[in-house]
Design a protein around this nucleic acid. Structure first.
Lengths: 215, 215
DNA sequence: GTCTATACGATGATAGAC
DNA sequence: GTCTATCATCGTATAGAC
C-alpha cells in the first residue's frame, strides 16, 4: 500500500518518464539505472521489481510512444489506399508519404512529453546497442511494409527495389531531421533547432516526394 | 626497441585497426579498452601510453579515415565551382552533390579496411556520446559549408534556409544508407546489405538531386 | 619505451529485511 | 510493495617494474 499520499504519477510512470528522458540524451548504455531511478525519485531496485530488467524497461518506454503513433500511421496509410481503390486510381505518392511522415512529426506537438522521444527515434535505427535497434525494428517493420506496398501501388512504373531504397533514403532524411530538430543541446551544423513540426513537414515532404518520383 | 620481430603492423596501428572495428559495431561506450587491446593483441595500458586517453584514440581513428576523404571531397567540390565559374554558368546541382557523395561511398571500395568505418560514419551524427558527435562534427563542418555554398550557387532561386535543410535531408539519407549497407549483421528491414558502392551512388544521386530541385 | 599489475569508481542485478 | 545492503563485473587510468 502507498503511504497515503497518492501522488500525481505512480512509481511505474515516473520510472518511464525518467527513463525516456535519459535514454534520449544518454543512450541505452549511458542511461544507468541509478540515474534513472535517481531522477524518478524512486528506489534503485524498483526497476527490476516493476519491469524485470533494463531491457524490459527499454521496451516499455518505446512501446508507450510507438504503439499509439503506429495506430495513427496505419489508419492514415490504409485510408490512402482505400480511397484510391474506390476511385479506381492509384494512390498519390505525396499522400502516402504524408500519411507516414506527418503523424510522426506532429506527434511531438500533440504530446509535449514526447519531445525527448524525438531524439531517441532519430537515433533508433543506428543505435550502437543491438537491443535498441532490435526493439525499434520490431515496432517499425510492419508499418514500413505497409508504406512500401502503398508506395509500390503509387509508383507502378518503378521497380520495387528502387522504391525500397528510396523509402530508406526517406526514412534516413526524416530520422536525421527528427534528431537534430529534437536536440536542444548541440547547435548542429548551425541549424536552428527550434523549428516547429508543421514547418518541418512542409520542408521535408516536397523533398522526399520529388525524390520518390525522380527520373 | 622491438623484440626483433618487426611484425607487419606496429602496436599503434594494430590498436587503431581494432578500435575502428569495435567502435563501428559497439559504439564508443560499448567498445571497451579491454576489448580493443585484446583484439589488437597488445597490453591494456598501451592505449593510454600511445594515445593518452580513449577519447584521443577515437580522434585518431576518425582522423585517419576522414582527412584523406575530406581532401578528395574538397578538391572535387572546388572543381565543380571553378569549372562553372570559368564557363560563366551556375554549377550543376547533381555535380555538386556527386562531388560530395561519390567519394564518400567509393571510399569503401578504395580502402577495404575502411568498410567497418562505414557503419561508424552512418552513426556519427546521432551517436549518443557527445564526444563522438563533437569530433565528427569538427571534421565534417568545413566540408558541409563548402557543399552548402556550392549548392546555393547551383540553386540561386531557392532561399538559403531551404537549401540548408535539404542538404540535411541529403546527409540523413546518405548516412542512413551507409549505415545499413555497411552493416553485415542485421538484415535491416529486409534490405540486401551487400550492395556495392557504385550501385548505391546510382540509387541515391537521382533521389537527392530531385529533392534538391523540388518545386 | 614498453608492458604487468593494480587502483578505484560505477554498473546491472539480487537477496532479504521491513 | 518498498527499501537497504551487497555481489560480481566491468570501465578508465595510473604507478612502477623491466
Amino acid at each position: 500500500m502507498n503511504s497515503g499520499d497518492s501522488t500525481l504519477t505512480d512509481t511505474k510512470e515516473r520510472i518511464l518518464d525518467a527513463a525516456e528522458h535519459l535514454l534520449a540524451i544518454k543512450g541505452f548504455r549511458g542511461a544507468s539505472l541509478r540515474a534513472i531511478t535517481g531522477e524518478a525519485g524512486v528506489n534503485l531496485a524498483s526497476v527490476n521489481y516493476h519491469f524485470g530488467s533494463k531491457k524490459a524497461l527499454l521496451e516499455a518506454v518505446i512501446k508507450r510512444r510507438i504503439q499509439p503513433l503506429n495506430h495513427i500511421r496505419r489508419k492514415r496509410l490504409e485510408q490512402v489506399r482505400e480511397s484510391a481503390r474506390q476511385k479506381g486510381k492509384k494512390p498519390d505518392v505525396k499522400a502516402a508519404l504524408s500519411a507516414f511522415i506527418e503523424p510522426t512529426l506532429l506527434f511531438k506537438e500533440s504530446n509535449p512529453d514526447a519531445k525527448k522521444f524525438f531524439i531517441f527515434i532519430g537515433r533508433s535505427l543506428t543505435d550502437p546497442d543491438d537491443t535498441v535497434r532490435e526493439v525499434f525494428l520490431r515496432f517499425i517493420k510492419p508499418i514500413f511494409h505497409l508504406l512500401f506496398e502503398t508506395a509500390c501501388e503509387a509508383l507502378p512504373g518503378q521497380p520495387r527495389e528502387i522504391i525500397f531504397w528510396r523509402l530508406h533514403f526517406t526514412i534516413g532524411a526524416l530520422f536525421h531531421a527528427m534528431h537534430i530538430s529534437g536536440n536542444i543541446k548541440t547547435k548542429f551544423l548551425d541549424v536552428k533547432t527550434g523549428i516547429d513540426a508543421n514547418s518541418l513537414v512542409n520542408l521535408i515532404l516536397p523533398f522526399v516526394t520529388a525524390g520518390m518520383k525522380a527520373k
